[in-house]
Design a protein around this nucleic acid. Structure first.
Lengths: 333, 333
DNA sequence: CGAAATTATCTCAGCGCTAACATAAACTCT
DNA sequence: AGAGTTTATGTTAGCGCTGAGATAATTTCG
């Protein structure tokens, strides 16, 4: 009943050709007579042959795996990047193999090691921050490497993302242009999320351009979340800080801030303007759509995967792909 | 500079043992003298040896891959399941390989084929709905199979999840117990999300126990989202349906409903009670925490992965693991 | 028309590991 | 002390595929 899975040899015998010819038909490599191809494909179909990827990987010392290292799955941002990667891989024989680092560079290093044990065709990772050992592994592997989300540094191979400094700067400029002058900042723990820190720096810089500096600041000790944003804004305001607008480290935090205002009866944006980052759906579903900056997470993932598959070799010079960002006007600032 | 990656042979030579002995040390299989083990481990460390997984998979016709088929990554629920899976795999040599089906059974079948080409140690998939071909592949593969989220059917190997019928029933009972009588339903497209349909059936059944039936219903044509929930509730109420409580197909929809009420100035729960499903963070961060049912997504993923690794063989009888659910009282119903 | 180039196919070694079996040394037991 | 058992290690043959080069059949061209 449960007969062995057919191998190349079975297909070859049925199609009356050599194994190698079958292999070439499958991989679309080298010249094949149209008639032979047809016969081989027929044989493949009739046997229900599925190539053994492990054997292929071993023989060619390169697998159809794309290793993906993500810092987290709790934050919807990274699943969206992953979705973009999957979208790009959907009609290819490539498969994503995932590791979750929990924002821990040593964990990243460890996972990188086990991903490389599969001899993946490429590695997708996040940011420019890696341990020395990771960096050495990435560089010496010779395979294509994409570093996602950020573009404010020099990538190993390619970087795909947006300038977080630039985004932070734009949020300040936007609020200043709208006439806000007493602008506060509510954030979360930077040690895990360096890009949030970059945005903060850009934000300060943007204020400085207008001769301003943050009117008040509060940083929640812990990861970003709606709850954290709610509490953090309460804290900031409770301190009697006199602010007319608040920039949040991201939309999750900003939505939390929105909730606080609702609960405390603060008119948005008359009494307090709110500004986020990411452009999440939830922000747009608020009674007043959140003013924020849209980062194109899906696009980042898709672009990265597409670029990686475009060429097997790294470009001579590291390449940076700016997927940009856009101000979402919203109604909260 | 870029010397070849060390292989078993290199380690074996350095440790002055046979390759097989090194292999056994690595896999912790068979008796090894303590002294030999130490020498081998030293050699491994000094060479920085990393086993080639493809070779291992080929030789043993079984890889350290766990294939994971998820319907979607847009809905935070599935990344959370994935997070649970990763948590269970974190300290094992296993790696998750992911496919996203977009709720399409044919896509699932296709992805299943390419996952099986890696000879994974186990497959994790969602629900009991599979094409005949998929089912055949799963059954004949002989490897461990987990079907997640639902437990209201007979699994191939093990099922891990909760009774969606039961959860639906409980939401009705909860509202009835609170004195609500004109209870409506706001949902999304069922064709993609069968479990939402099961909850609806349970909901009806729960009402029936109290001699009631839904006071009004509206089903949004499309996937669930906060926006959809907001619009759908507006539609339901716009029709002049006289309801005092609404059960939503899930928390995303319910949060949208909450937003509608805020915008329309409807007091929650005095004028209208809201009830969700999932227990997402966002629901608990609302000005009034959402009354809902907590499904333990993380636990489902983690339990499934743990169970799969517990034994290489399927149990004689299909096994069902109920991760349960709990009513979250909240303040909206 | 024969040599060179092109096209289509085959042969065969080997990728790096593991399974199965063989062997050797060290015990245990009667 | 010899047979049987246990423990520790070695030997060997692939797993199923791909890459490099060999070979054969066909076309092109001076």
């Amino acid at each position: 009943m449960q007969r062995e899975a057919p191998t190349l040899a079975h297909v070859a015998r049925l199609a009356a050709v050599s194994e190698n010819t079958v292999s070439r038909v499958i991989r679309n490599k080298g010249p094949i007579a149209e008639e032979t191809r047809k016969r081989v494909i027929e044989a493949i179909d009739s046997l229900g042959y599925v190539p053994n990827r492990a054997a292929g990987a071993l023989a060619s010392s390169s697998s159809l795996i794309i290793g993906v290292l993500l810092p987290s799955l709790s934050n919807i941002v990274f699943p969206e990047v992953l979705r973009g990667i999957h979208a790009a891989l959907a009609d290819t024989p490539y498969q994503a193999m995932i590791g979750v680092t929990d924002y821990d560079l040593l964990q990243e290093q460890k996972l990188l090691g086990s991903l490389l044990a599969w001899q993946p065709a490429a590695i997708v990772t996040t940011g420019f921050d890696h341990t020395d050992a990771s960096r050495r592994m990435l560089e010496q592997s010779g395979i294509r490497i994409a570093e996602l989300m950020d573009i404010d540094d020099r990538p190993i191979d390619i970087a795909v993302g947006l300038s977080h400094r630039g985004a932070g700067r734009e949020s300040a400029r936007h609020l200043v242009a709208r006439g806000y002058r007493r602008i506060g900042y509510v954030g979360h723990d930077w040690s895990a999320d360096r890009r949030a820190h970059f945005r903060y720096e850009g934000f300060r810089q943007g204020l400085q351009e207008a001769g301003l500096s943050p009117a008040a600041e509060f940083r929640f000790e812990g990861a970003s979340s709606t709850m954290a944003g709610r509490e953090a804004l309460a804290q900031l305001l409770g301190r009697g800080g006199d602010v007319d607008a608040v920039v949040f480290s991201n939309d999750d935090m900003a939505v939390g801030g929105f909730m606080h205002c609702l609960g405390a009866g603060l008119a948005i944006p008359e009494r307090l303007a709110l500004f986020g980052f990411n452009g999440l759906d939830i922000g747009q579903a608020l009674p007043r759509p959140l003013s924020t900056i849209r980062s194109n997470r899906f696009l980042i993932g898709r672009t990265a995967a597409e670029k990686l598959l475009e060429a097997r070799e790294r470009p001579a010079e590291p390449q940076i792909i700016d997927t940009g960002f856009e101000i979402v006007e919203g109604a909260t600032a």
